[in-house]
Design a protein around this nucleic acid. Structure first.
Lengths: 205, 205
DNA sequence: CCACTTCTGTACTAACCTCTACAGAAGAGG
DNA sequence: CCTCTTCTGTAGAGGTTAGTACAGAAGTGG
């Protein structure tokens, strides 16, 4: 049945998208609801009616980010013919996203995490789980390659996933510090040189 | 001549050290002067008289951090007999510092940076310059190795320094997320496997 | 002892924070 | 048209922020 009552005067999805950009740019704790309501063009009561409160709005913004931004990395990985190309696609794709001209630099989730303190533990934990998901997605792709015979049976996929996740986080910080896109792509090439076909990345003793 | 007037009732250096730990743990924007004055055991007027304001206190805290923490990395690099060992010492030493039980996890400067927004541009720029210094210190060590014939003449020292700096920032985030010290050391070993003696790290096309 | 200087605690300001009460506006159903 | 529901803008409550005015305390120099 149709909803009764006065209809909402703004597009909820568009407003959420704007909120995502503001949080992405400024982090969680350092973004005020005044910033948000100004950027979204919505007065506080409407904002709270539509999104409950600042924390819920942030969670929805993160979920939107994962559905759009992070999903593109995931798809690039799935479409790559080899594991090595999958990892390269993840890293190079992320560099492109981290340095896109029309969006804030770096990864929203990496940035959000560091702007949270012990005061916002639930938000912090939420962001932490999101970051852990990136690593496990990568690990799953590596495990599939082991299962498919593309990587040696004894490959330490957890360690490799941790290595590239760590590097990826570093790239996000560099991007936020203003590093050139081309330089970041070069760094990805360097990180990929850890890789040797079939045996997977070399692991020093 | 001796200073006249009522003497200060607290140890300024000890108070600054405490402030450093609080900023390190909580970041800049997300630390309130109330947090600081409580942790330091000093009432606001004394705090402001001794350190001028929050921003100046933060700058002094960063400088103290650099003099103590960052300096230990620098010394480890200088004492290493080879470049490769110097880089390894920098990374392994940083991992130990990032996961020390009696201090906040990760790098204070990396953390501080992300907790700053456009509102605190002067603080942000200050932290940015500090991070750039880490890279140039590393680059200087690599350049010295080239000059001394330890690395090939055409080694791209800037790129190598950028690579390890990026990785180091990633390690700081992992440490803050609660990664095990042993695992981080393993990741460092992986990053070092990019290295091949004399020619320096392999750089893929 | 006294003047002078500097620090200390109390108590405060002005601005900002997240969030909301309330009255009126704008639609749907009858 | 009238009622009922839900949204909207104004305006502000209650708390926290960075920073300070002021009176008194605690030293030094004479």
């Amino acid at each position: 049945m149709a909803r009764t009552g006065r209809p909402r005067s703004f597009d909820r999805d568009a407003a959420l998208h704007t909120a995502m950009l503001v949080f992405w740019e400024r982090g969680y704790a350092t973004t005020s609801t005044t910033d948000l309501s100004a950027a979204m063009g919505i007065n506080p009561p409407s904002l709270y009616a539509a999104f409950k409160n600042k924390e819920q709005l942030f969670r929805e913004a993160i979920e939107l980010y994962e559905r759009t931004e992070a999903e593109s990395s995931r798809r690039a990985m799935d479409e790559a013919p080899t594991v090595r190309e999958a990892v390269a696609a993840l890293l190079h794709g992320s560099v492109d996203r981290f340095t896109a001209a029309d969006r804030p630099r770096g990864c929203m989730i990496v940035h959000a995490a560091s702007s949270c303190t012990t005061d916002h533990e639930s938000v912090r934990d939420f962001a932490l789980r999101c970051r852990a998901r990136t690593k496990s997605t990568l690990k799953a792709r590596l495990d599939a390659a082991v299962a498919g015979g593309e990587l040696a049976e004894d490959t330490d996929t957890d360690r490799i996933a941790a290595f590239y996740t760590t590097f990826l986080n570093g790239l996000s910080l560099q991007a936020r510090d203003g590093a050139e896109r081309a330089q970041l792509h070069e760094l990805v090439d360097m990180a990929m040189s850890v890789w040797s076909p079939r045996t997977g990345p070399l692991v020093a003793a």
